[in-house]
């Protein structure tokens, strides 16, 4: 009765760190080899669990920067982790973890904040099916929810707008990469707000995607420091700059927003003011430790 997304079932897995490299001033890119990993869709996340010698454990969720089916290199997963000052797990992952270290992961997780290439999307159309409660005819809320599912269930033709704040770019970069790898024809744009050039995640990969055949436009907003010769000075993202960069509401884009709660609240409210349908806007926020 209920449409389940075409994303694999989650479970606990043993993982080995294959490599750890600096991604930004404060973040590391970790490549993991995960035993029995079933693959994941772009935008999904996983839980990392660390265990200390005395049995103490700490678990945190991280977005996955890669995607792929469970074939070939699909047991390889890429994370990009920003160090949270005073945090417990992120400083370990950024500063301590190195090739050969073992940790546990649970996933893949989340079936809503995901994007799949058109070829896979028909299969995934059940992702946002409305709940089938017995009262559907009697309850006006149910009709509203069903409309939302319809709006989300026509994935391929409508453009996709990604809006990232800081390390919130990670799941969105996975979507852009999946789009580029598939040579998908869906028009894609990313608006990425970042402190400075040294804080850019996936700088080289995103530039390659701009040049690749799949339609992808990248708009960067620097909030503290710009590259030399940048046409505008540093400053926070404004409503006007957002309006100039994103697909217009009349093009009915599907919009994915990821960043801090403040960033997501601000951006989502601007999108509503600009006429975007709330049901077309999917959000994910990070915060805490």
């Amino acid at each position: 009765m209920i449409g389940r997304p075409s994303v694999p079932r989650s479970g606990w897995h043993a993982a080995v760190v294959v490599s750890s490299t600096a991604e930004t001033r404060t973040a590391a890119r970790l490549e993991l080899e995960i035993e029995g990993w079933p693959g994941n869709a772009a935008g999904q996340h996983l839980d990392v669990r660390l265990t200390a010698p005395d049995g103490y454990t700490a678990t945190r969720s991280y977005s996955i920067a890669s995607s792929g089916p469970a074939t070939g290199d699909a047991t390889r997963v890429v994370l990009a982790v920003d160090r949270v000052p005073g945090g417990e797990v992120s400083p370990y992952l950024v500063d301590v973890a190195r090739a050969g270290d073992r940790l546990e992961v649970h996933g893949p997780l989340g079936a809503f904040f995901v994007w799949q290439p058109a070829a896979d999307a028909a299969e995934a159309a059940g992702v946002a099916d409305a709940a089938g409660s017995a009262d559907a005819a009697a309850d006006p809320d149910a009709a509203e929810a069903a409309t939302a599912a319809d709006a989300a269930g026509a994935p391929a033709a409508r453009p996709v707008q990604l809006i990232a704040g800081g390390s919130g770019v990670v799941p969105l970069a996975a979507m852009a990469q999946a789009h580029g790898d598939a040579g998908d024809a869906t028009p894609f744009r990313m608006l990425y707000s970042v402190r400075s050039p040294a804080d850019l995640f996936f700088a080289a990969e995103l530039q390659r995607l701009v040049a690749a055949p799949a339609p992808f436009r990248l708009d960067l907003v620097y909030t503290r420091a710009t590259p030399e010769g940048w046409p505008v000075g540093p400053g926070r993202l404004t409503r006007d700059a957002l309006e100039a960069a994103v697909f217009a509401a009349s093009e009915t884009p599907r919009v994915f927003v990821c960043g801090s709660t403040g960033f997501v609240e601000r951006v989502a409210s601007w999108l509503i003011e600009l006429g975007h349908d709330a049901r077309d806007i999917r959000t994910e926020r990070f915060g805490g430790t």
């Binding site: 669990r49 660390l50 270290d101 073992r102």
Partner: peptide, 16 residues
């Protein structure tokens, strides 16, 4: 299945 992760000591012991 739990195993110790090298180099992880745990930041806090304020288990409540």
């Amino acid at each position: 299945m739990s195993f110790v992760t090298r180099g992880f000591g745990g930041g806090s012991r304020d288990r409540d």
